[in-house]
Amino acid sequence: MSSALTIQGIHHITIICSNAQRTIDFYTQVLGLRFIKKTVNFDDPGSYHLYFGNEVGQPGSVITFFEWPGASKGHPGIGGTHHFALIVEDYNGLLQWKRRLVDLGLSVEGPLDRHYFKSIYFNDPDGTILEIATRGPGWTIDEAPDAIGTEFREPPPEMIVNNRDEARIQAETWPEPVPEITRSMALSQGMHHITAIGSDIQRTQAFFG
Protein backbone atom coordinates (compact mmCIF):
# COMPACT_ATOMS: atom_id res chain seq x y z
CA MET A 1 0.00 0.00 0.00
CA SER A 2 1.25 3.49 -0.85
CA SER A 3 2.35 5.49 2.20
CA ALA A 4 0.05 8.26 0.98
CA LEU A 5 -2.91 5.92 1.54
CA THR A 6 -1.85 4.69 4.97
CA ILE A 7 -4.18 5.72 7.79
CA GLN A 8 -1.89 7.03 10.52
CA GLY A 9 -4.33 7.05 13.41
CA ILE A 10 -7.29 8.85 14.93
CA HIS A 11 -7.50 12.56 14.07
CA HIS A 12 -10.40 13.54 16.35
CA ILE A 13 -13.80 12.51 17.64
CA THR A 14 -16.88 14.75 17.42
CA ILE A 15 -19.69 14.52 19.98
CA ILE A 16 -22.98 16.35 20.58
CA CYS A 17 -23.43 18.55 23.65
CA SER A 18 -26.40 20.54 24.89
CA ASN A 19 -24.62 23.46 26.56
CA ALA A 20 -21.37 24.92 25.22
CA GLN A 21 -20.23 26.68 28.41
CA ARG A 22 -20.93 23.69 30.63
CA THR A 23 -18.94 21.50 28.23
CA ILE A 24 -16.04 23.96 28.20
CA ASP A 25 -16.00 24.06 32.00
CA PHE A 26 -15.98 20.27 32.33
CA TYR A 27 -13.30 19.46 29.77
CA THR A 28 -10.96 22.28 30.83
CA GLN A 29 -11.50 22.59 34.59
CA VAL A 30 -12.25 18.95 35.46
CA LEU A 31 -10.17 17.08 32.85
CA GLY A 32 -7.52 19.74 32.22
CA LEU A 33 -7.70 19.71 28.42
CA ARG A 34 -6.87 22.85 26.52
CA PHE A 35 -9.72 24.71 24.81
CA ILE A 36 -8.15 25.24 21.41
CA LYS A 37 -10.91 26.63 19.18
CA LYS A 38 -14.47 27.96 19.19
CA THR A 39 -16.09 28.36 15.81
CA VAL A 40 -19.33 27.37 14.13
CA ASN A 41 -20.37 24.08 12.62
CA PHE A 42 -19.50 24.59 8.95
CA ASP A 43 -22.49 22.46 7.93
CA ASP A 44 -24.85 24.02 10.49
CA PRO A 45 -23.69 27.64 11.00
CA GLY A 46 -26.34 28.28 13.64
CA SER A 47 -24.52 26.07 16.16
CA TYR A 48 -21.15 26.28 17.87
CA HIS A 49 -18.27 23.89 17.21
CA LEU A 50 -15.90 23.51 20.18
CA TYR A 51 -12.41 21.97 20.03
CA PHE A 52 -10.34 20.59 22.92
CA GLY A 53 -6.93 18.93 22.85
CA ASN A 54 -3.35 19.12 24.05
CA GLU A 55 -1.23 22.27 24.13
CA VAL A 56 -1.04 22.58 20.33
CA GLY A 57 -4.18 20.71 19.28
CA GLN A 58 -2.18 17.80 17.89
CA PRO A 59 -4.29 15.35 15.84
CA GLY A 60 -5.11 12.37 18.01
CA SER A 61 -5.60 14.56 21.07
CA VAL A 62 -8.61 16.47 19.76
CA ILE A 63 -12.21 16.14 20.98
CA THR A 64 -14.80 18.37 19.33
CA PHE A 65 -18.44 19.13 20.12
CA PHE A 66 -21.44 20.43 18.22
CA GLU A 67 -23.77 22.36 20.52
CA TRP A 68 -27.28 21.16 19.69
CA PRO A 69 -29.43 22.01 22.74
CA GLY A 70 -32.61 20.74 21.08
CA ALA A 71 -31.28 17.31 20.14
CA SER A 72 -32.78 14.20 21.72
CA LYS A 73 -30.83 12.28 24.36
CA GLY A 74 -28.42 9.81 22.79
CA HIS A 75 -28.18 6.11 23.58
CA PRO A 76 -25.85 3.33 22.38
CA GLY A 77 -26.90 1.71 19.13
CA ILE A 78 -25.59 0.00 15.99
CA GLY A 79 -23.43 2.32 13.93
CA GLY A 80 -22.80 4.61 16.90
CA THR A 81 -19.99 5.23 19.35
CA HIS A 82 -20.27 3.65 22.80
CA HIS A 83 -17.40 5.54 24.44
CA PHE A 84 -13.93 6.94 23.88
CA ALA A 85 -10.80 6.62 26.00
CA LEU A 86 -7.99 9.04 26.81
CA ILE A 87 -4.46 7.95 27.73
CA VAL A 88 -2.89 8.31 31.14
CA GLU A 89 0.71 7.17 31.48
CA ASP A 90 0.48 4.74 34.41
CA TYR A 91 -1.64 3.20 37.14
CA ASN A 92 -0.78 5.81 39.76
CA GLY A 93 -2.09 8.48 37.43
CA LEU A 94 -5.25 6.44 36.89
CA LEU A 95 -5.89 6.14 40.63
CA GLN A 96 -5.31 9.87 41.03
CA TRP A 97 -7.96 10.49 38.39
CA LYS A 98 -10.41 8.27 40.22
CA ARG A 99 -9.86 10.14 43.48
CA ARG A 100 -10.14 13.55 41.80
CA LEU A 101 -13.34 12.69 39.93
CA VAL A 102 -15.04 11.07 42.93
CA ASP A 103 -14.13 14.05 45.13
CA LEU A 104 -15.75 16.30 42.50
CA GLY A 105 -18.97 14.32 42.83
CA LEU A 106 -18.76 12.08 39.75
CA SER A 107 -19.68 8.42 39.76
CA VAL A 108 -16.63 6.38 38.67
CA GLU A 109 -16.48 2.71 37.71
CA GLY A 110 -13.18 0.92 38.17
CA PRO A 111 -10.26 0.69 38.05
CA LEU A 112 -10.92 -2.34 35.85
CA ASP A 113 -8.19 -4.62 34.55
CA ARG A 114 -8.68 -5.00 30.79
CA HIS A 115 -5.55 -7.18 30.50
CA TYR A 116 -3.98 -4.87 27.90
CA PHE A 117 -4.59 -1.76 30.02
CA LYS A 118 -6.36 -0.65 33.18
CA SER A 119 -9.11 1.92 33.10
CA ILE A 120 -11.88 3.88 34.80
CA TYR A 121 -15.23 5.01 33.38
CA PHE A 122 -17.41 8.04 34.07
CA ASN A 123 -19.81 10.41 32.29
CA ASP A 124 -19.57 14.00 31.14
CA PRO A 125 -22.45 16.42 31.92
CA ASP A 126 -24.46 15.23 28.90
CA GLY A 127 -23.99 11.56 29.73
CA THR A 128 -21.24 10.75 27.21
CA ILE A 129 -19.25 7.77 28.51
CA LEU A 130 -15.55 8.55 28.95
CA GLU A 131 -12.76 6.17 29.81
CA ILE A 132 -9.26 6.95 31.04
CA ALA A 133 -6.89 4.08 30.21
CA THR A 134 -3.27 3.36 31.03
CA ARG A 135 -0.76 3.15 28.21
CA GLY A 136 0.42 -0.32 29.18
CA PRO A 137 1.01 -3.14 29.41
CA GLY A 138 -0.11 -3.06 25.76
CA TRP A 139 -1.42 -5.29 22.99
CA THR A 140 1.73 -7.40 22.77
CA ILE A 141 1.38 -8.85 26.27
CA ASP A 142 0.02 -12.11 24.81
CA GLU A 143 1.09 -11.95 21.14
CA ALA A 144 4.26 -11.11 19.25
CA PRO A 145 4.26 -7.63 17.65
CA ASP A 146 4.15 -9.09 14.13
CA ALA A 147 1.22 -11.36 15.01
CA ILE A 148 -1.21 -9.17 16.94
CA GLY A 149 -4.80 -9.67 15.90
CA THR A 150 -4.18 -12.96 14.10
CA GLU A 151 -5.80 -15.18 16.74
CA PHE A 152 -8.82 -15.02 19.03
CA ARG A 153 -7.77 -14.30 22.60
CA GLU A 154 -9.97 -15.26 25.55
CA PRO A 155 -9.63 -12.77 28.42
CA PRO A 156 -8.51 -14.06 31.82
CA PRO A 157 -11.63 -15.33 33.67
CA GLU A 158 -11.06 -13.16 36.72
CA MET A 159 -11.40 -10.02 34.58
CA ILE A 160 -14.90 -10.89 33.34
CA VAL A 161 -17.96 -9.28 34.91
CA ASN A 162 -19.50 -11.43 37.68
CA ASN A 163 -16.03 -12.89 38.37
CA ARG A 164 -14.44 -9.63 39.50
CA ASP A 165 -13.89 -8.62 43.10
CA GLU A 166 -16.20 -5.60 42.93
CA ALA A 167 -15.71 -4.60 46.57
CA ARG A 168 -11.93 -4.40 46.13
CA ILE A 169 -12.30 -2.49 42.85
CA GLN A 170 -14.66 0.04 44.38
CA ALA A 171 -12.35 0.62 47.35
CA GLU A 172 -9.18 1.05 45.28
CA THR A 173 -8.28 4.71 44.92
CA TRP A 174 -5.54 7.27 45.58
CA PRO A 175 -5.04 7.82 49.33
CA GLU A 176 -4.90 11.63 49.24
CA PRO A 177 -7.15 14.31 47.69
CA VAL A 178 -6.05 15.47 44.23
CA PRO A 179 -7.17 19.11 43.92
CA GLU A 180 -4.82 19.79 41.00
CA ILE A 181 -3.98 17.71 37.94
CA THR A 182 -0.45 16.36 38.38
CA ARG A 183 2.06 15.65 35.62
CA SER A 184 1.43 11.91 35.91
CA MET A 185 -2.28 12.53 35.29
CA ALA A 186 -1.85 14.57 32.09
CA LEU A 187 -4.28 13.55 29.33
CA SER A 188 -2.37 15.50 26.68
CA GLN A 189 -1.15 12.30 25.00
CA GLY A 190 -4.53 12.01 23.37
CA MET A 191 -6.85 9.21 22.39
CA HIS A 192 -6.27 5.67 23.64
CA HIS A 193 -9.15 4.18 21.65
CA ILE A 194 -12.74 4.64 20.49
CA THR A 195 -15.29 1.87 21.02
CA ALA A 196 -18.18 1.64 18.55
CA ILE A 197 -21.10 -0.76 18.19
CA GLY A 198 -21.45 -3.08 15.19
CA SER A 199 -23.99 -5.70 14.16
CA ASP A 200 -21.66 -8.19 12.43
CA ILE A 201 -18.18 -8.75 13.85
CA GLN A 202 -16.84 -10.47 10.72
CA ARG A 203 -18.07 -7.69 8.45
CA THR A 204 -16.60 -5.07 10.78
CA GLN A 205 -13.23 -6.83 10.84
CA ALA A 206 -13.21 -7.07 7.03
CA PHE A 207 -14.00 -3.36 6.70
CA PHE A 208 -11.42 -2.05 9.18
CA GLY A 209 -8.78 -4.76 8.82
Score class of each variant (00 low, 15 high):
1 M>V: 09
2 S>C: 03
3 S>W: 10
9 G>I: 10
10 I>P: 10
13 I>W: 02
22 R>L: 05
22 R>W: 00
22 R>I: 02
34 R>P: 01
41 N>I: 10
43 D>R: 15
48 Y>F: 11
48 Y>D: 13
49 H>N: 13
51 Y>M: 09
52 F>C: 05
53 G>F: 07
58 Q>Y: 12
60 G>K: 04
64 T>H: 11
65 F>P: 14
68 W>E: 10
68 W>I: 07
70 G>M: 02
72 S>E: 12
72 S>W: 00
72 S>R: 06
73 K>R: 14
74 G>K: 09
75 H>I: 08
77 G>L: 00
81 T>A: 15
81 T>F: 05
86 L>F: 07
92 N>Y: 05
97 W>N: 04
98 K>G: 11
98 K>V: 01
98 K>T: 03
99 R>Q: 10
101 L>C: 09
101 L>P: 09
103 D>N: 14
105 G>A: 00
105 G>S: 02
106 L>Y: 12
108 V>L: 02
110 G>W: 00
112 L>C: 07
112 L>P: 08
113 D>G: 04
114 R>E: 07
116 Y>I: 07
121 Y>Q: 11
124 D>Q: 06
126 D>P: 05
128 T>W: 01
130 L>D: 11
133 A>Y: 06
133 A>E: 03
139 W>A: 01
143 E>N: 12
148 I>D: 05
149 G>E: 05
152 F>N: 14
154 E>F: 14
155 P>S: 08
157 P>W: 04
162 N>I: 06
165 D>A: 07
167 A>M: 05
167 A>P: 00
168 R>T: 08
168 R>N: 10
168 R>S: 11
170 Q>Y: 06
172 E>V: 09
173 T>L: 00
178 V>Y: 04
184 S>Q: 10
185 M>Q: 12
187 L>R: 07
189 Q>L: 00
189 Q>G: 04
189 Q>T: 07
191 M>F: 04
192 H>M: 01
193 H>K: 02
194 I>L: 04
197 I>P: 13
197 I>A: 09
198 G>I: 02
201 I>H: 13
202 Q>C: 02
203 R>Y: 05
